[in-house]
């Protein structure tokens, strides 16, 4: 009588045991962003874009095209590059069709972020048309931050925030935290669904 013995299975069980034994539980990677739906009153301010042109914020944001807003600055470390990489990848995923989305970055360092600095920043990220970087007077920038419940008294204490305007009702999806391209695209698609 032959007793079957699962040699291979036993090998893999032990292999698995050997492999996982020294590994401690991981954490921190699965933190998700926070999502909420908000209504914002956009202040009637005139800001300046990367080409040095004056732009009325209300007419830029109150659009039939989905609009996404974030707050960054030109010499920022850590967070802004991640947010901007998110913009770049969204543009790539949407095939740079600037009718599908309007991306707006508003500086929180209006002292330093001149049109020249902003233009170089966009160039560095290979931004395509449809992504505008705005600066202005500190008073106007403060007004805009407050309107989005995103007032940052000092740029060194800022945080990652994206807001997507839903064209169907003008409400905003507020996204606090850092997202993957897939999550960002998913949020965009949900916000723009008819």
């Amino acid at each position: 009588m032959r007793i079957p013995f699962p040699r291979i299975s036993l090998f893999f069980v032990i292999l698995l045991f050997v492999c996982i034994l020294p590994v401690r539980p991981t954490h921190a990677a699965d933190i998700k962003y926070k999502r909420s739906i908000e209504k914002y009153n956009i202040p009637d301010v005139v800001l300046i874009n990367q080409d040095g042109k004056k732009v009325r914020l209300q007419s830029l944001l109150n659009s039939d095209i989905p609009v996404i807003v974030d707050f960054i600055y030109g010499t920022c470390t850590t967070i802004c590059p991640v947010l901007s990489a998110g913009y770049v990848n969204l543009q790539r995923k949407l095939d740079a069709d600037n009718q599908k989305v309007r991306l707006i970055s508003i500086t929180i360092d209006p002292e330093n972020d001149s049109p020249k600095v902003m233009k170089e920043y966009l160039k560095r990220y290979r931004a395509k048309p449809g992504w505008d970087f705005l600066t202005g007077s500190r008073a106007d920038i403060d007004t805009v931050m407050r309107a989005f419940n995103a007032y940052i008294p000092d740029k060194m204490s800022h945080y990652p925030l994206n807001m997507i305007r839903m064209p169907k009702n003008g409400n905003w999806v507020r996204l606090f935290g850092l997202m993957s391209t897939k999550e960002f695209l998913n949020e965009y698609q949900m916000a723009t669904a008819k």
């Binding site: 590059p81 991640v82 901007s84 990489a85 998110g86 770049v88 990848n89 560095r124 990220y125 290979r126 850092l178 997202m179 993957s180 391209t181 897939k182």
Partner: peptide, 13 residues
């Protein structure tokens, strides 16, 4: 790559 799948050039970052 940042955040799993966000590709970025290191010349920017």
């Amino acid at each position: 790559f940042i955040r799993g799948d966000v590709a970025v050039d290191s010349s920017a970052f």
